[in-house]
């Protein structure tokens, strides 16, 4: 069972909820921190057996001795990563999407692919939780290859919780698209509602069942709840607005430790979403 925890708006509590789900899983669980631009799951876990490995993507390298300056590599590149105005072409590897088109079209095989390190993956264990986290290097614009690598390397456990990046762009899609169920975490504010609506529309297009958790539930108004009702979205849980929870969080203490009364609620969520497990994939 793969649950992805996502949101439109940032800072609504995805990591809080992801950790709580991982800590209340009924079986051994894997927590995937896919918020690769700002991963923070590790702060809350005492990790052991930590291993780090690089993530790289293939980018072209031109052999200037055999290049005949035909410019075909530049023409085929849809991402403006190869610039040609004479000889030899210039490569902007940070714009490359690793499609390999330039390598295939080069008539004299002057282009080969070399690895470009864009981030790293950290794995470790915290009690019964298997933890895997991706981190994108500073200044690298493309998060998806690191997220895909996290997902590719995972699958060690029956149950998985994916802590997704915020927003609804490529990185969020990469994180949630293979999941059985998406939990959208939001807050009862105009921003929370607006971004929830965008996230719901996105998940609808991916045909993944979803539910909503409202965090800091008594801090705003009822419009998020009304929207959920209108849309027929299941409101899985409300997490109260509490200084104690916030204080504990800022000290690196997960929700389940600071508000143990919520553990049962999270266990119920596991039971509920298990019904949505996708049969064939």
């Amino acid at each position: 069972m793969k649950i992805a925890v996502a949101s439109g708006k940032g800072g609504t509590g995805k990591t809080t909820v992801s950790l709580a789900l991982a800590m209340t899983a009924l079986s051994n669980v894997e927590l995937q921190d896919c918020d690769v631009e700002e991963p923070n799951g590790h702060i809350f876990l005492k990790l052991e057996n930590v291993i780090k490995e690089n993530v790289s993507v293939p980018v072209p390298e031109i052999n200037t001795d055999s290049c005949i300056s035909c410019g075909k590599c530049s023409e085929i590149c849809q991402f403006n990563a190869i610039v040609f105005f004479g000889s030899p072409p210039m490569i902007f590897k940070e714009l490359c999407h690793s499609c390999g088109g330039c390598v295939k079209i080069c008539p004299v095989s002057a282009i080969r692919e070399i690895p470009n390190v864009i981030g790293h993956i950290t794995t470790g264990k915290a009690g019964s939780i298997e933890f895997i986290q991706g981190q994108l290097n500073i200044g690298v614009p493309m998060a998806s290859p690191v997220i895909r690598q996290v997902i590719r390397l995972s699958g060690k456990r029956e149950d998985t919780v994916i802590d997704s990046p915020p927003g609804t762009s490529c990185s969020m899609i990469s994180a949630v698209k293979e999941s059985d169920f998406v939990i959208l975490v939001t807050e009862p504010t105009p921003f929370g509602l607006n971004d929830l609506q965008i996230a719901v529309e996105t998940i609808e297009k991916l045909f993944i069942p979803m539910g909503v958790i409202i965090n800091r539930s008594d801090s705003g108004d009822d419009r998020v709840e009304e929207y959920c009702k209108e849309k027929g979205l299941e409101l899985l849980m409300k997490i109260p607005f509490s200084t104690d929870i916030a204080k504990a969080y800022s000290n690196g203490m997960p929700l389940i430790n600071s508000a143990p009364q919520l553990a049962e609620k999270f266990k119920e969520i596991w039971t509920k979403v298990r019904l949505h497990k996708r049969e064939s994939k």
Binding site: F79, N80, F85, L95
Partner: peptide, 13 residues
């Protein structure tokens, strides 16, 4: 992405 690169190409050409 790459607006500056393409713009540069245009004026070079």
């Amino acid at each position: 992405q790459g607006a500056g690169i393409q713009a540069a190409m245009s004026i070079i050409k």
